[in-house]
């Protein structure tokens, strides 16, 4: 092998290493950026940038899930309103619902929205995978409470199609109906 060829090989190895380092760094920075954006767009502060969401946020703040509990624990909007059965699903639903809300908020007829009517379809925008993401041990802890055990039996045995919010229809937003009316 000639000296020249050896130099060429060395050069291209360095080139590959450099590209990997730069690419990796860029990738990490981008992922970091996306993670930050995903995180920053998860809570009520972001969601109320659309003003139509204010009554929902107010009712949420008054609720156990919105921080009105002895320990002050708060559950972000997306914990319930995005699916938690996989990262791809989660991100896809986030993008889809985000774009939808952006479009309606800016170009839609907001006065024509019947929020009370929308509540009847809550199961389409509150995800059981979200509930179960936090209430991981619900099945076990309700075993010893006969009332809760019976109420959840058909659900955990998968003998009903009902979702969490079909029974817990006020969860997350305390007296939401009163706030929507305002």
């Amino acid at each position: 092998m000639s000296c020249n060829t050896e130099k060429k090989v060395k050069k291209s190895i360095w080139f590959i290493i450099c590209m990997l380092v730069i690419g990796g760094t860029l990738g990490l920075l981008t992922s970091f950026g996306i993670a930050v954006v995903v995180e920053k767009t998860s809570d009520d502060k972001f969601c109320t940038m659309c003003h139509t969401m204010q009554p929902m946020a107010d009712a949420y703040s008054a609720d156990v899930h919105g921080g009105n509990n002895p320990m002050g624990i708060k559950v972000n909007c997306v914990e319930c309103h995005l699916p938690h059965d996989g990262l791809a699903n989660y991100l896809f639903a986030k993008a889809q619902t985000g774009l939808h809300d952006f479009r309606v908020e800016n170009f839609g007829d907001l006065d024509s929205i019947n929020w009370e009517e929308k509540r009847k379809h809550a199961k389409h925008f509150v995800y059981d995978s979200g509930c179960m993401h936090c209430h991981v041990k619900l099945r076990d802890v309700t075993m010893s409470n006969p009332k809760a055990f019976i109420a959840h039996k058909e659900y955990f045995e998968k003998r009903t199609n009902k979702t969490c919010v079909e029974c817990h229809n006020n969860v997350g937003h305390h007296n939401l109906g009163d706030y929507i009316k305002k």
Partner: peptide
């Protein structure tokens, strides 16, 4: 099983 009046008759304020 301990299901009493309040379990069936209580409703949320906005009901």
């Amino acid at each position: 099983v301990g299901v009493s009046c309040i379990d069936c008759h209580s409703v949320k304020k906005d009901n």
